[in-house]
Design a protein around this nucleic acid. Structure first.
Lengths: 204, 204
DNA sequence: CCCGATAACATAGCAAAGCTATGTATTGTG
DNA sequence: CACAATACATAGCTTTGCTATGTTATCGGG
């Protein structure tokens, strides 16, 4: 009945946008299609305009974040896993600061909210596992503690990746998470060890 | 020898920009000067261009933040004061979410870094006072703990004011700060009370 | 007291931005 | 095989930030 959209063009445009973003070059309609051979109309057939492209970029950002978090294999130590998830979150933000900023830049669509919920879920599960083995108290609300971990991770990512704090400030993540998890009932010594073991990743 | 710049025009333009920002209307060169009676050149004589205007907006944001923080009168309970400073920080961010976002949006100039340092200083002083009266351990580094408090405040502000978390999530500030300050050596019961007394402000 | 130099300001217009109207080509379906 | 619907290119419109140029007002020195 008609021609079909070529999905390769769509991902090509997204990739090029991410590439421009990483190169600190302005992402404009014309600079996007410059190297691709397609015309400016492609952006409108595939994304409905530049706004649609930014929405797609946000989705791409959450997809990459989910991939990073999925790399964290659950271990026998859920507190370590929580710190490792935080480290993966930071690692993702530092790997693509501009893309990370785009994720939280403008209007939050329902799709982004769902993606953010997925991000939280992996944290919630780790908190629940920590409760099961008695590291956290019974009265700890998994969603609440997961949200608090997210707040710390996002605050650190935002201030370091695109803000005024230097990269060494990433080390603040260890005392922050240790204090949070100790407050949730974990033994201070064990907590510190678990967090330090999980936080290995992003100090590069 | 020459005409003098009129400072009133400068603040008029800044005010109008903040007004447009709060009304969620695009801040463009021509929309700025639309109601003022001045021409587009004014933006260039006063700010050197739109970038200069955004820099001035960031300064304005930090000025308002400093004013909010200055409203917090130091009391005999420095832990309460720390929580009150965090609440004032949140209150400022929620009063002008768009302006708050502008503050951390793009390039961080030296001036902004200095303003951010001033913000930190009020926190550092409160931490030092808490050490003096024995609420925090002697080995607590004031700058480190102040930075950690800032990370929490900014994470909360960013995720609530312009992000996916609902306004009720502000309540997460209490357990977060309580855990942080308890980890710094404060007695859990006293800490909770102090934080709750200081956190009164932003739950509106 | 006035005049010239200098800076503030208005006007007009340029390059590039996003977007749209229109025409062409291509592909799935009857 | 023919038709219709959709992808895509081309060209141009509107608005953006910015600048070149001319005009006017103001302060200091004679």
């Amino acid at each position: 009945m008609a021609r079909m959209k070529d999905p390769a063009v769509r991902s090509q445009l997204i990739d090029r946008a991410a590439q421009l973003l990483a190169a600190r070059q302005p992402v404009t309609l014309r600079s996007l299609v410059a190297g691709t051979g397609v015309s400016t109309m492609a952006v409108y057939t595939y994304f409905g305009g530049m706004d649609g492209l930014w929405t797609a970029m946000r989705q791409e950002g959450f997809t990459r974040l989910a991939a990073r978090l999925a790399e964290v294999a659950p271990s026998a130590d859920p507190v370590r896993d929580l710190a490792a998830l935080g480290a993966a979150y930071l690692s993702n933000a530092l790997a693509g600061p501009d893309l990370y900023r785009v994720m939280f830049d403008a209007g939050f669509d329902l799709e982004n909210a769902a993606a953010a919920d997925d991000t939280l879920h992996s944290l919630v599960r780790a908190v629940e596992r920590a409760k099961v083995i008695g590291r956290f108290r019974d009265d700890v609300e998994p969603l609440g503690l997961a949200t608090q971990s997210w707040i710390i991770g996002h605050g650190l990512a935002s201030l370091v990746a695109t803000g005024p704090l230097p990269r060494q400030a990433l080390a603040q993540g260890v005392p922050l998470l240790t204090a949070l998890f100790t407050g949730a009932g974990d033994d201070p010594g064990n907590c510190r060890r678990s967090v330090e073991r999980g936080w290995r990743i992003p100090d590069v």
